[in-house]
Simulated scan of single mutants.
Amino acid sequence: MKLYLAVPVVLLALLIAASGVAAVSRGWVIPVNRRPVCHPRLYGWGQLVVAFALCWQMVFLLVPGDPDTRQWGTLTGSALLLTGLIVMMASHRTGRDSAG
């Protein structure tokens, strides 16, 4: 088993998921991202999708024995990861000035 790879990725996914739950339920975003994030709940949903995608990729990396299943599972996880990142980017402010 590749536990040296799975354990840090799953821990990172748990941290991202905890931050996503806080953003969805309370509208709280970590202080580094508070200024650029305009829609914290949308940002939280994006974080939850990213966390799910990371776990999805780890499951399909470790569990299936069939190479085709592993390939399609990790490809699906990559598509989910990209979707989550796009949702997180959509929650950011535009490039306009706050005074304008």
Rank of each mutant, 00 (worst) to 15 (best):
G73F: 06
G44K: 09
A53D: 01
C55F: 07
L42G: 06
V63D: 09
R41W: 03
A22W: 04
P64G: 08
W28Y: 11
I16P: 04
A23V: 02
W72S: 05
S78T: 11
A53S: 13
T76V: 11
P36E: 00
I86G: 07
C38L: 15
L48C: 06
H92W: 08
T76L: 04
V37E: 00
L12C: 07
P31M: 03
Y4I: 11
L3G: 13
V29L: 09
L48H: 12
I86R: 14
A6H: 00
L82R: 14
G77Q: 01
R93E: 08
G77E: 09
Y43A: 03
T83Q: 10
C38A: 09
L12E: 13
R35V: 13
V37R: 00
W45L: 04
D68P: 01
M89W: 05
W28I: 10
A79G: 06
V10W: 15
F60M: 08
G46Y: 03
A6R: 05
V50G: 03
Y43P: 06
A23R: 00
I30K: 06
G20F: 05
P40F: 00
V59G: 14
D68W: 15
H39A: 01
L62D: 07
V50Q: 10
T74G: 01
Q47W: 04
Y4Q: 12
N33A: 05
F52E: 02
G65N: 15
G73Y: 07
V49D: 06
H39V: 01
G95S: 08
L5E: 05
L54M: 15
P40D: 09
G27A: 07
S78G: 14
G95C: 08
M1V: 13
S98G: 08
G65L: 11
V32Y: 09
S98W: 08
R70P: 06
V29P: 12
P36G: 12
V32R: 13
W45F: 11
D68G: 09
L3R: 04
W45P: 03
G100L: 14
A23T: 11
R34Q: 10
L11E: 05
M88P: 05
L61H: 01
V24D: 00
L82A: 15
L62G: 02
W45V: 07
V10I: 15
H92A: 11
L82C: 03
L80P: 02
C38H: 13
F52D: 03
R35W: 14
G100N: 09
G100V: 12
A18H: 15
V7C: 02
A17H: 12
V29D: 08
C55T: 06
A90N: 00
V49W: 01
R35M: 01
G20L: 14
A99Q: 11
A6P: 06
L75N: 07
A51M: 14
G95Y: 07
A6C: 13
L75E: 09
S19A: 15
G44R: 14
F60S: 05
L80V: 06
N33S: 01
V29T: 00
D97V: 04
A79W: 02
R34N: 10
L81I: 10
V59L: 15
A90C: 07
V50K: 02
M88R: 02
R26D: 15
V87T: 15
R26E: 03
L75A: 13
W56M: 01
W28H: 08
L54D: 03
G27R: 09
R34M: 05
L11M: 12
R35F: 04
C38G: 06
